[in-house]
Amino acid sequence: MSITRDIASHENAVAYGGLIDAIGGVATIVLVICGLVGISPAMMVAIATIVFGVALLIQGGAMLSDYAQVVFPGGVRTATPEQMGGNSLALVFLVGAGGIVLGVLSLLGIKPDVLSPIAVIGFGTALLLSSNAVWRLYVLRRASASMEVASVGQSQHFGAEMLASEMASGSAGIQALAGLAAIVLGILALAGHTADLTLNLVALLALGATLVLTGSTLSATVLSFMRTT
């Protein structure tokens, strides 16, 4: 019984982690819009970079935590590290921390025209390489749940799982496209384009919107497999 409560508490924590990601994405969008309408654009870029970096750290932690809780019955061949997506999630952690540092330095006025585009390129790369992470998580949890159902005979939430499947598969493609777009915009800004601030803001806008989607998808994936016991 205590194990069941611990698992439920963990799943709630991961679901809340996805919600916090979505909130971080919304905050990034709000800051970017303020910059686009002319409210201290340089400062908004730096603050949005910090906020997005923090949200990226939380997202990486939530997904790694949920990966760690995927349980397979004894004797069953488990997934390889490549299938688990551990390498890409480690990159998400690294880029999130680096983005926070670059954002703080930009906010202090240290080469913001260089550091902000570098952070955007890093964010885009992290999202591109980890675009399948939520989908892999769904597949692993689905396999684990199927094995558990076969051995225990518990009921399944087919509607919720179908919704989570659609969200996970859809978010993977959108995240990859947003990451690629951010990389391109960041490179253009770093190359000295006259509208470098606007390019950074647009890139962060796309990244923030993607984070809202992936955070919501992560929460939906976890909640779709919540145990009722």
Rank of each mutant, 00 (worst) to 15 (best):
L185F: 05
A160M: 02
A191T: 12
I39W: 10
L57D: 09
T49Q: 03
Q59M: 14
A133L: 10
S224H: 08
V104R: 08
T229S: 08
R141C: 07
D66Q: 15
Q59R: 15
F158T: 15
G74Q: 15
G192S: 05
R227E: 11
L190E: 07
L140C: 01
A143K: 15
E148S: 07
A97I: 12
P73W: 02
A13F: 13
T198Q: 03
Q175T: 14
A220L: 11
A90G: 11
V37M: 06
T80M: 06
L204I: 10
S151K: 14
L56M: 13
P117K: 09
G215D: 07
Q154C: 09
L64C: 04
V202T: 08
G53V: 07
E161R: 14
S146R: 15
V14N: 05
G124F: 07
V120T: 06
I39C: 05
L105D: 06
M1H: 14
G24K: 11
A172H: 06
D6F: 07
A182Q: 09
T78G: 07
L185Q: 11
C34Q: 13
L31Q: 04
V92L: 05
G103V: 07
G18Y: 04
G186A: 06
M162F: 04
S144C: 01
G170N: 03
V37S: 02
M226F: 08
P117F: 03
